[in-house]
Design a protein around this nucleic acid. Sequence first.
DNA 1: TATGAAAAAGAGGCATT
DNA 2: AATGCCTCTTTTTCATA
Lengths: 141, 141
Amino acid sequence: MVDAIDLKIIDILEVNARQSYAEIGKEIHLSPSSVRERVKKMEDSGVIKGYSLRLDQSKLGNTLEAFIMLKIFSGKLKPALQEIEPYPEVKEAFRITGQHNLYIRIALKDQLHIQQFIDKLVNFGEPTTHLILSRIGKENF
Amino acid sequence: MVDAIDLKIIDILEVNARQSYAEIGKEIHLSPSSVRERVKKMEDSGVIKGYSLRLDQSKLGNTLEAFIMLKIFSGKLKPALQEIEPYPEVKEAFRITGQHNLYIRIALKDQLHIQQFIDKLVNFGEPTTHLILSRIGKENF
DNA sequence: TATGAAAAAGAGGCATT
DNA sequence: AATGCCTCTTTTTCATA
């Protein structure tokens, strides 16, 4: 399904998803079309779901990044999901195991906005908030 | 710094970072070169840090996704960071406020591997693990 | 906006299994 | 027969003025 060469391509694209097939091919000693074929197969099979951006949220004016874990009130899961879905502040969300049921990552302008955001969530569950202080690791995180 | 048109370009690239400048230009009624110029400026200023992939980890054989929050033991922050930095299983990590100090997101083959991973972390702090059950929201999450 | 240069997409062929 | 890679050609896109 996905062989060692495919994994190499993924590694390269993970660092820079806009790298050309020609350049990728040079790195792994394959022709541009072969690289392209492999990428297309991975897109078609769903291994590669899409291509995205790494943004510096602070330079976009969002000085606060945080994640909120929600302990959902009984029967409030569906309405909670519908509530948070459309917000552009929400960068990522998933259902989780443990004391809380929902993980929501957000990027916000300032403290006032995080307060307003939490105020909306308290209708659906009990929130625990963690501010993100800094990212760790390689640049491609 | 970043105007409304730039934000539109970011929105488009966030959904598909491999979209061509020509196509982006069509959507926002701008010439390919103008789009290209704006993107380059955002790259140079660091607003756009890079381009990345959205992968289906389960199709790569990683059936388990999780995040671990670590309550770091006194003086163990630096060694903890050095320990986790090189692991390919670590997809994201940041320092956080609250009861825990470190957030670590991982993708792993199976339960055995998560156990082994946690075993390494207990030397540096007290871990709390949450498995990720499912992603919520649009496809570009 | 127009241009040459570069890359992507597609077709066909060859080699290995 | 199927797969994976290559080369060649056409079309599209990029970067420069």
